[in-house]
Structure formats: C-alpha cells, structure tokens
Amino acid sequence: MPGKVHVTTTINGESVEFLCEPRQTILEVLRDQLDLTGTKEGCSNGNCGACSILVDGEVIDSCLMMGVEAEGQEIITIEGVASADGLHPLQQKFLEHAALQCGICTPGFIVAAKALLDQESDPSEERIRLYLAGNLCRCTGYDKIVRAVQDAASEMAE
C-alpha cells in the first residue's frame, strides 16, 4: 500500500502542509482535508470548471490535478478572492447582476474571471465568453455572468 506524501504548499497566501495519498486530487485535499469547501466538484473530468482554482496565477480544473503536484506551488481558491476590506469586485458584481441562481458554478466562474482580469484589464465580450467557455452554468444562461464580469472590469479599471 503506497504511503502518504508530505506536501508543502501555499494556499491563499498562507503556508500549508498536508499529507495525502498519491491518488487524491487537489480538489479532494482542499475539500475533505483542508475544509476549503468553496471549491465545488461538478463533473470531475475537466468539462465544467466548477472546481477552478489558480495555480501560480493560472486557472486550472482542480479535479484534474493531483494533491502531490501542489508541492511548492501558490494556490488561490475562492476563499482567497475576497480581501479583509470586503468582497472582490467580481463577487460584488455577481451579486448586483444576479449572476447566479443555484450558486454551484459561481466559485469556479469567479476564480476563472479573476484569472482573466488579472491578465487583461479590458477584455471584449467575445474574449470573456471564450475565456469562460470552460465553466458551465445550468441556471443563468450566461448573459448575467458576462455582464457582471464586464462591470467588474470597468470598476477595477477606475
């Protein structure tokens, strides 16, 4: 029986150590061991984006990354998006535009949109829709989500 692996990583700005089995995904580690349950499990095969997290600033599906791969990485989850001063503009605009209904996809959308706005301050609507193509929503029809991201981009540019 393979032993557990000791992993040292950074999650939401804090140094974190955990033990995991090689077969555990980072999604399982985040949710089941570290109690960071804001990251959601949807399809678990890389289609829906509900489990999106940032690894070294890049958005990835945490269902398709092993926990052991987190060694030495900088991870941001939805729990690390708001600051001590309050909600991130994306979070605020999702509320204002009612860009969520059931809410399961929302952490993934916000993390993915944050990755986009961290790189591009003024993305076009087409760019936003393409960038968020890996995040599925069964409730909203996407339009309110795109408006919320556009509005957040405008506010962050001010």
Partner: peptide
C-alpha cells in the same frame, strides 16, 4: 484545445 483550464495544464 479544451478550455483555458485545460490549456493551462
């Protein structure tokens, strides 16, 4: 290929 999430991995 795939999504941005997939292209990053």
């Amino acid at each position: 290929i795939g999504s941005i999430q997939i292209q990053n991995r």
